[in-house]
Nucleic acid binder design. Structure first.
Lengths: 359, 359
DNA sequence: TTTTAGCACTCGCAAGGCAAGAGTGCTAAT
DNA sequence: ATTAGCACTCTTGCCTTGCGAGTGCTAAAA
């Protein structure tokens, strides 16, 4: 009553330096031990030069302000969602990943530099191991891709395997069934013609081309168009997950039922796509932190998601991030996600920028 | 004592028809309810025309023979690993998947027939949904693949993206860094030359070719060789998982710690590769059932794995299967795995048999 | 005005005891 | 060969109780 108007403190985020310290320590201790933090533990474990009574008073303020809560009367304090949010936005957001970790990650990536197909699973694996939670990485996806090459492979009878290569290295395969059998030579000829016609063109440019007189070529062309626009509409390509077991062993996932629902969200790709699209709409940049579902995702009530976009905005982008219990080591995961996003951005721009420069 | 020599019964698998029935019912009931099955429950729930005492006598025999056990004195019976094994090998192994399920699966696959890239994830998804446990599918992998096409894409400065297409439709990408910048026209020319030289040849045949005089072509050729042999050595390509959440909600996974270790086995791809290789060495055919790790895999003590190979033996093969608690509905999963393996075999042979016929 | 010692109070949690119930094995009768 | 009956065992749920952790408040000290 006589100290600080709690409403004022809430609205203006006006915490004293000491209150911020106590909040930070409680968040830190709770993320490590998963046990509610009491005043005595705080004093003795972090060598605070204060009495437990003083801590209790400060904790009472933080509780009134909505940053802490008590599971029950005779337990210590636990951060609320607002508590985590304050911690993330006002205390550790700017922290950089420490040099040793940066070095380790760079090194691991350098070793796999050549092997493009390993980039995404490797990124997911590193993210999971570094942050000790589950990770997800979506393959980079071009907003507008250009035709590079077409391959038509006769397999059996009327069946043909079509392999489409885009600038930027995206590859898609499709199995066609033609109206009648066509010899391989004829297919190769058609592919050569279409390659020449479509080379380096976008979906729109190909669509605007005059119709082919040859029936086979015409049919294939329409399939190419369909495939390309399908690729462009997809929010993201493949999704790589790793480290789900890290999350499973967390205590909050042992009993709680809705924690398992959260994992379901990550298995059901369509739901995940929706989550990504809504959490990071176009134009949003930087690291996004969703704490406890933010009221929008009921399944994520006990979980947090840290997301970032990587790549070249407007050209080729993907997303990566981590997923774990709300009680997550944000001071570790946020810098890690940011660093990995920058790193992948570098790799992607190296791979495709040459392409773009040709124009 | 005065009934049947239990050792004899064990060694010769000599169970009476009634004992087999009781074993089957206990397995069935236990897989459904996850509760130990008592004599009373068996009689009333399955309308047996016997008294509970008779059932108890038979259950005592089955227990002495090692097919059943009691978690504790006042509980019902639970199948042992030997019990499951007997059930699988002597009771339901030949069962076919019922027609409605076959129809559903075929239908789902027919719809995605065109989209080669969707086959594996679709197979994993169907397997998981049909059998209500976790599923895994490895991409088909050619023992000896033949070169089909090469694409060299200049990206930036000395960096080049190499896209390699094999007969059978396997595609691999690799990022190279050349000693010095090379214009795209030069790269395309080299690719065309190498395409002509290597077309339809195996790794061995390409290795036996006379060395190229051109340095660039020579370097690329050695990279192609490395990539192709790497692809051949790999036990299997990508691995698709699905339905892990099905397994997570099973009661034995709630508390047990080593159940979570089992899931770790499936996340760590290298461990999984090892498991697959050892569980299904070359030449082994048909559906393999690993019950409780079979003494070889400590992590799988509480779990079972049902595996089958698909494809064309000696040419292109992959594996698929399911993973779940030992208390699994084998009568459902085994026919499902068998059916799916046959179905994928059909698809794969359609895709590649034409290729092979060209020779 | 801020900090701290002291104290009463609350409440979760583990331990112990008890009754109920489930399921068995054995024996004797059918 | 089967079954009814019964004594026995052991889990499970429930209740009680005591302990301990942690708090908030008040009054004194800095």
């Amino acid at each position: 009553m006589e100290r600080i108007d709690p409403t004022l403190a809430l609205v203006m985020s006006m915490l004293t330096e000491r209150q911020r310290l106590i909040l930070a320590l409680i968040v830190r201790d709770y993320t490590e031990t998963a046990q509610p933090v009491g005043s005595a533990r705080l004093v003795e474990h972090y060598k605070l030069d204060l009495s437990t009574a003083t801590i209790r008073n400060e904790m009472a303020v933080l509780t009134e302000s909505g940053y802490l809560r008590q599971p029950h009367t005779s337990a210590g304090r636990v951060p609320t969602e607002e508590g985590y949010r304050y911690f993330v936005t006002h205390i550790i957001y700017q922290t950089d990943l420490p040099e040793p970790a940066r070095h380790t990650i760079s090194h691991q990536f350098h070793q796999a530099r050549q092997d493009v197909e390993q980039w995404m699973p490797l990124a997911a694996s590193i993210l999971a191991h570094q942050s000790k939670v589950a990770s997800l990485v979506t393959a980079p996806h071009a907003d507008r891709s250009r035709f590079k090459h077409l391959e038509l492979i006769s397999t059996q009878g009327r069946q043909v395997l079509m392999v489409l290569v885009m600038t930027g290295g995206e590859v898609s395969q499709q199995l066609l069934t033609l109206a009648e059998p066509v010899p391989q030579e004829r297919l190769s000829a058609a592919a050569t013609v279409l390659c020449a016609v479509c080379a380096n063109r976008t979906t729109e440019e190909i669509a605007a081309l005059p119709a082919r007189s040859d029936t086979l070529e015409k049919d294939i062309l329409s399939l190419i168009l369909a495939d390309m626009s399908r690729g462009e509409q997809r929010v993201s390509g493949d999704i790589y997950l790793d480290g789900l077991t890290n999350v499973l062993s967390e205590p909050e996932f042992l009993e709680s039922n809705d924690a398992r629902q959260a994992i379901r969200l990550f298995e059901e790709r369509s739901l995940l796509q929706d989550l990504l699209a809504r959490a990071m709409p176009n134009g949003v940049d930087g690291v996004q932190v969703l704490i406890g579902g933010e009221g929008k995702w009921e399944e994520l009530r006990q979980c947090s998601v840290v997301l970032a976009r990587y790549g070249i905005p407007g050209q080729v982008t993907g997303m990566l991030g981590v997923f774990g219990p709300m009680r997550m080591a944000y001071s570790r995961t946020i810098p890690t996600v940011r660093f990995m996003a920058d790193l992948l951005s570098g790799l992607v721009s190296e791979t495709i920028s040459g392409e773009e420069n040709e124009f």
